[in-house]
Amino acid sequence: MTAAIKPRTMKMALVGDINVGKTSLARMFIDGTFQARYQASVGLHFHTKTLRDPSVTIQLWDTAGTERYRSLLPHYTRDAVCAVLVYDISSRDSFDNVRSYWLDFVESHAIPNMVKFLVGNKADVDTREVSDYEAQMFATNHDTFFMETSAKFGTNVDNLFTEAAKAVIKAIPETQFENGGIRLEDLHRKHDRRCCLAHA
C-alpha cells in the first residue's frame, strides 16, 4: 500500500462577503453538488475531504459572511493554516471588501506563515466587474495565491484546494502545524477509526 493511511489534516477557512459563493464552493468541493438558491449561512460549518495528491485531509470551515457575525469570526479563523478569500467577479464591492477588510482581517488573526488564497468565484457569469488581471496584480502584491473558479460548474474548484494544500505543505512544516492550534484531540480519534476502516 503506497498511500499514507493517516494523512495530515489541515484546517482551511473560507471568508468573504455574503453571497459570493463560499458555501457553494464548499459544497462543490465536498460532494460535487451545486444549489442555485441562495441561503445565508448562519453559523460555522465544517466538512472534511481527503485528497490523494497531496495526501491530506482538508477540514474546510465555511463562515457566515453576514456583517453582524464578523466579530465572532476570529474564533474560527485564527488557527486555520489557509484562508480562502472569496469575492464574486461580478461584484466590484465584494472585491473591494477583500482589499479593504478581509485581507486585513485574516492577517490580524492568523498563525505565522498562513497561506492566503484569493478566489474570484462565479467565473461563469458574464457581467464581470473585476478583471482577472487586476485581481492577479493585487494577489501578487500581497503575497497571495490567486485563482478564478466557478462553483456552479465546478471549474477549478478541486484545483483550488489541491493547490492550497500544496502551498500549505510548503509554507508550514508538519511539526509546526501540529502545534498550530488545530484541535488534535478531536482529530486523533477520527484517524484511528479511519485506520481500522482502511484495513477492513
Partner: peptide, 20 residues
C-alpha cells in the same frame, strides 16, 4: 487502483461528514 482508492476515500469522507 486509483479509482478504487478514491472511491474509498470518498466513502470515508462521506462517513466522516455523515457522522458529524
Amino acid at each position: 487502483y486509483k479509482r478504487v482508492y478514491e472511491d474509498i476515500m470518498k466513502k470515508l469522507d462521506r462517513l466522516e461528514n455523515d457522522y458529524l
